[in-house]
Design a protein around this nucleic acid. Sequence first.
RNA 1: GGCGCAUUGGUGUAGUUGGUUAACACGCUGCCCUCUCAAGGCAGAGAUCACGGGUUCGAGUCCCGUAUGCGCUACCA
Length: 506
Amino acid sequence: MSVRVRFAPSPTGYLHIGAARSALFNWLYAKKTGGKFLLRIEDTDLQRSTDESTRSIIDGLEWLGLSYDEELVFQSANADKHRAAANKLVAEGKAYRDFTPKAERNDATVKQGIADRARAHAAEGVDHRSNPFRDLAGEESDKRAAAGEPFAVRLKIASDGKTHFDDMVYGPQEREYSEIEDLVLLRSDGHPLYNLSVVIDDIEMGITHVIRGQDHLTNTHKQILLYQALGARLPHFAHLPLILAPNKGKLSKRKHGEVVSLTTYRDRGFVPAAFRNFLALLGWSPAEGKEVLSVDELIAEFSLEHIHRSPAVFNFQENDPRHWTDEKALWMNAEYIRTMPVDDLLPMIKAELRANKLWREEYDEDDHDWFVSAVQVIRQRFHTLKDFSAQGRAYFSDDFDFDEAAVNKNLRKEPKLKELLPGLADHLEKLDPFNHDTAEAALRGFAEESGVKAGLLINGSRTMLTGQAVGPSMFEVFAILGQKRSVERLRSGVPWFDAMNAVGDV
RNA sequence: GGCGCAUUGGUGUAGUUGGUUAACACGCUGCCCUCUCAAGGCAGAGAUCACGGGUUCGAGUCCCGUAUGCGCUACCA
């Protein structure tokens, strides 16, 4: 039987990186086994589900390159099937109507409420099979239902025995029935609940392997009971270790903000392949040590056996712009930016420049070769796509900012540069041809005849031409910017002439 | 409260029939390269493998206990 896996997020917000990783692992498993990867939106919680969120999930998967097979399934569309299944279980005596009035719960205190109730039950000796309606006669139950009395439907779980399954990641698991309450399948308003819906939908969609977060590990036992009650064949289960915050707590948007949202990485200039690669390494590692892996390599290397069981910490420092997300993710992105095939990178840079009004159509036409060579040079030290429009701005526009510290360090510190730089411009202007080597010879010659170190002119030029203190080799910069712009910028004197006497504001 | 899962340097991980100085990547430090910053090369710091017992000639690897963290326990998903 061929593999069918699914990613089943609930559309109650942005796509969380933990969920994105689940999607990735499901997708990789499908590709690895030649199976199908399906997407199901679990929107049964109507109050909290939004179209916007669904949109962002789909966009996020697309951005990561995780395309799904077959039609997108909305769980809410199957509600009737879920209800029918529950009613069938009632008719078969495998589930029962519970006429106990619904207890109101406050979302904020549920966890505490659960613990309190459990403690109280233990103290009073109340067990999970003590529901008074559990063994209500069928006729009586039908009569009360027909009379319009509200009821929830609960699965009737046997008093003795245990469920077990062999998790593909966590190994053999078992749980006593006595630990499991008769779970509610249908709310008293007829609304099907999560455990019922997933099981029915997974059966319906022919899912063979359920790969999801470890937070569902213990729920699996309840779902197995449902599969059995429904007489359905069990899928294989594989649970994934959770991704935690640096303090080993839960990673949540509430507490940690946008670092946990996949779209943040897109918006902050990540190359999708780089982030996908990084995500793949959270909780899984390839058999061989190699960590930078193309999609094809990921697929070839991927196996559930190499997923490990302890939770992974997603390392980042809040309030520190330099370490706003995991350093390894940042490194991975830089690695991709400087080493990936330039043709794959170009469209992303184009989009970035376009968004900042720095794109010119000539870059696709007459100036294409120039554009490629400029990218080849500057991408070497960039970390995100954003850098192309920020630090890289001077390569694409004459309107760029000067870094204050760079101006102080490379220009203001040596007043002689006020004359030297225009002097250098005069020499460069005469060059024919103008290129890396001739520019270097001219600069070094001029430095010697002026009695100054070449480095002084080089660093001064860097700041005059790019506004920055750091960047590629200066002669490469001259070559990229070309003779005309190099000469103009050397003569412009903008950032420091005026500021020398004045207040220092550029 | 109960049940479950986990615990290897700061982080991600390797180590899966128990057997040399616990390996790799990111990060960090230093040196080289050099016009700056990266990249790259070289060198280095950093782990009594959560803790305590036990089994064994020998344990990160097996067993028991403890602690800590996380998850589940709901007419949430």
